[in-house]
Design a protein around this nucleic acid. Structure first.
Length: 425
RNA sequence: GCGGGCGUAGCUCAUUUGGUUAGAGCGCCAGUUUGUGGCACUGGAGGUAGUGGGUUCGAUCCCCAUCGCUCGCCCCA
């Protein structure tokens, strides 16, 4: 440990064999659900032109966000950035390949690495991994319900308990008026806000809702609510929200309306949602998403509605374990070849090849260990059978097949043993 | 970016008011007679105590720095 010269960069992690099965489980669960919901996988480049992400993360905060991106100048002297989120690249691909021409609605999903230069914390890394979906071209609340139903099924399949919170942000226009109202409400108490929120008051008053400072909570008492504002000035958004709620009721998806659930960027509209868990301390969101009807246009396309969600795999696994979901184990191999003597050892490669040609997962000893050690290794790998080949067997062309669970052993021709092993593979 | 805690074998942790060869459990390797695992027993390998400085006769232990992890704050696409 002390002679270590290189280590993985801060906030990045190696996924070792003993933990990879959990990841594969999450990914396989997500893929199979997406297939069920008819979402199709898309893979976009790990990096894009910096400009794309700068645009997609909004003009107002791009200075701040840019500091949290892994940007670099390539030999072509252009600036590129490792993707800090999943949606922008997909929208770019949607526009670049005119996916809108293939049908009115594109339902896409991705599993991707995400890079953000920020302080690592629980469930928060500089390279993390997300499962997400994007549904482009459908403006109605049934699209929201589709995405939410998938998210519900996903968490349920993972054995994660979480609560759904939803809210409506209205349209950028109606939200602008709301922000003005909110400012008006807070103005008189401005001096009593936390220092951070006094800054937010200038930059992005909606964010004050995210504050944990009691002073800010006090100031927000009696603040105007988004949904009330929509009722008066944006009836279409309210109708959208109410229809969604009714649909969720019909689907048996429980939710909680959270008037303080907000999003920072302009292209967000209407539905915003988060699945939260109390299992994680400060990082409570396990899956978040919402509608972004303004994004495609922002990135140069025709006005196109969109809604999606993203969920960090690291955090899903943390919550899953905190919830006491059953651990996952690697699939054992079917057979372990034990050889005795040089002749058998030399013949081993060919026997393994035959087993594998018949679809049998198998392994052997590669360091010339004793039979006892080979048996131990077979046990350690939880092999279901050992195939023992010694000089005796070699001489008459047979093998000894031992069932490691029952301990029963029989000597038979290799071809027969393969028949048996194929039957259990 | 700010503040608190932590950093001893592969893993989980002991140890020291600063004092000879830093320990345990698990894991790993080997053996317990001749070709048989899981249990048990025996033995073994493995650590310049994250790293670099400093204080001291002497540092794993005290001080500083640095890297990493962690908790909270900021931020959160």
């Amino acid at each position: 440990m002390s002679q270590i010269k290189y280590q993985s960069p801060r906030g990045t992690h190696d996924l070792l064999p003993e933990e990879i099965d959990k990841w594969r489980f999450v990914e396989a669960t997500f893929r199979s659900l997406c297939a069920k919901y008819s979402f199709q996988e898309i893979r976009t480049p790990l990096f894009e032109q910096t400009e794309l992400f700068a645009r997609a993360t909004g003009e107002s905060s791009d200075v701040m966000v840019t500091k949290q991106m892994y940007s670099f100048v390539a030999p072509d002297e252009q600036s590129y950035t490792l993707r800090p989120e999943g949606t922008a690249g997909i929208v770019r691909a949607y526009l670049e390949h005119n996916l809108s021409e293939r049908g009115p609605v594109a339902k896409l999903f991705y599993i991707a690495s995400i890079f953000r230069y920020e302080a690592p914390g629980a469930g928060r890394y500089r390279q993390h991994h997300q499962c997400g979906v994007e549904m482009l071209g459908a403006a109605g609340p049934e699209a929201d319900a589709e995405v939410l139903a998938l998210s519900r099924d996903f968490l349920a399949a993972l054995g994660i308990e979480a609560q759904l919170k939803i809210n409506s942000l209205g349209t950028p226009q109606s939200r602008r008026d709301y922000v003005a109202k909110l400012r008006a409400h807070l103005e008189p108490q401005r001096a009593s806000l936390s220092p951070d929120s006094q800054r937010r008051f200038e930059v992005n008053p909606l964010r004050i809702f995210d504050s944990k400072d009691p002073r800010d909570h006090a100031a927000l008492q009696g603040a105007p609510r988004l949904l009330d504002h929509l009722a008066q000035h944006d009836p279409e958004s309210l109708q959208h929200f109410q229809t969604l709620c009714a649909t969720l009721d019909g689907l048996g998806i429980g939710y909680q309306i959270d008037h303080e659930l907000v999003r920072g960027f302009d292209y967000y509209s209407r539905t915003a949602f988060e699945w939260v868990s109390d299992k994680l301390g400060a990082q409570s969101t396990v899956l978040g998403g919402g509608r972004y009807d303004g994004l495609v246009e922002e990135l140069g396309g025709n006005p196109t509605p969109g809604i999606g969600f993203g969920a960090g795999i690291e955090r899903l696994l943390l919550v899953r374990e905190a919830s006491g979901a059953s651990p996952l184990e690697a699939a054992p191999i079917t057979a372990f070849l034990v050889t005795l003597g040089e002749g058998a050892r030399a013949a081993g490669a060919k026997i393994l090849a035959e087993l594998r040609a018949n679809g049998i997962a198998c392994d052997r000893d590669f360091v010339g260990r004793s039979m006892r050690a080979q048996m131990r290794e077979a046990n350690r790998q939880r092999a279901r059978f050992t195939l023992i080949v010694g000089e005796d067997e070699l001489a008459v062309g047979t093998v000894s097949l031992k069932n490691m669970e029952s301990g029963a052993q029989e000597t038979l021709e290799l071809a027969r043993a393969i028949e048996v092993l194929r039957g259990v593979s």
